[in-house]
Simulated scan of single mutants.
Amino acid sequence: MSRRDPKHLKILRGASIEISVGLSSCLCSRPESCDCNESWFLPKALISQYSPFLRAACTRDFKERDQNLIELPEDDPAAFALFVEWMYYGEYTVLASSSTLSESLHNDTNMNAKCWVLGDKLLCTEFKNYAMGRLYMQHTARSTGRVVATYNVQYVCEHSATTSKLRQFYLDYVVEHFADPTRLKGTTEEWDELLIHHKDLRMLVFQSFKTAPDQRRFVQSEMNYMDQDELLSNTLDRLRIEGNDS
């Protein structure tokens, strides 16, 4: 649904529900100003339109519906804030929270990956693909492409399935540019540890050595990293699992 469509206004009305994202209690030295947890009061119709996961929490016989509260303690409040921005405007803007260039690039690069991971949990394919499009542009732009660091790859390997499009993109990128220090960042020790712990990446790197450097073209077109809408049966299965865990 286009955000300019008059029908979009209808899903901004009606009953709302509180969504608490992040840890409700933390050990920060200044908890009153930390961003470990944020609460949102959002229209049920809005979140139900874009997330089958949240729609189930609002409508099914779960404790979330009875308490009018959805808790997402393991998710990143900053990523969820971008999801909210995307629901309202159809896009989001990642603001650098650091004063140094290297730290801001770190935050920016990882945030789009975190948005993809959040979209995967919320079963929102459209949001996942939007985040993937931003990631793809970040890293593949010829003149302004940003490097991929070991912590980027580590995060993706720890938070996505081995068959996910997110993991596929990062592994393809690493394999294609493994010998290019202008595209990859990290010490020899960091890459060695990454290869030891992730067999699929290690095997792809070794296999790439059989290909001439000028013929290593592993990164595919952007569309190849876009997810198709999940089958209804798969969606329902995932919702049942979440319901049993609550």
Rank of each mutant, 00 (worst) to 15 (best):
G119M: 04
S29M: 02
L232H: 03
L194S: 03
C58R: 05
T93I: 07
T109G: 14
I241H: 07
A149H: 13
D180L: 11
K185N: 05
D229L: 03
D75Q: 10
T140D: 06
D227P: 02
E190F: 07
Q49L: 14
N152A: 09
L123R: 13
G145H: 12
T144D: 04
H8N: 09
T211G: 02
C26Q: 02
W191S: 12
C157N: 14
I17W: 03
L122N: 08
T59D: 04
E230M: 05
M87I: 07
M226A: 11
N107L: 05
R240N: 14
H159A: 02
C28H: 05
S39F: 01
G186D: 10
L194D: 03
Q228Y: 03
W40P: 01
R183H: 08
C124R: 08
S48G: 14
E64D: 04
I70K: 02
K128N: 02
A79T: 00
G22N: 06
T144A: 04
R240S: 12
G145R: 12
E242F: 12
L9M: 14
S164G: 14
E91H: 10
E103Q: 12
K199A: 11
D76W: 00
V117M: 13
R13P: 00
L123Q: 15
F206Y: 09
S33V: 13
F178A: 14
R65Q: 11
N244D: 09
F209C: 08
G14S: 11
F83L: 04
V94C: 12
P31S: 10
M226C: 08
V205T: 07
D61K: 13
F206V: 09
A81D: 10
L236Y: 13
L239C: 08
L101C: 06
W116T: 08
K10H: 12
A131Q: 05
Y50C: 11
I47G: 07
I17L: 08
A96K: 10
W191G: 12
L123C: 09
P52N: 03
S221N: 00
D76F: 00
P181R: 10
E91P: 00
Y173C: 05
A45C: 05
L232A: 03
L54N: 07
S97V: 04
S48W: 09
H197R: 13
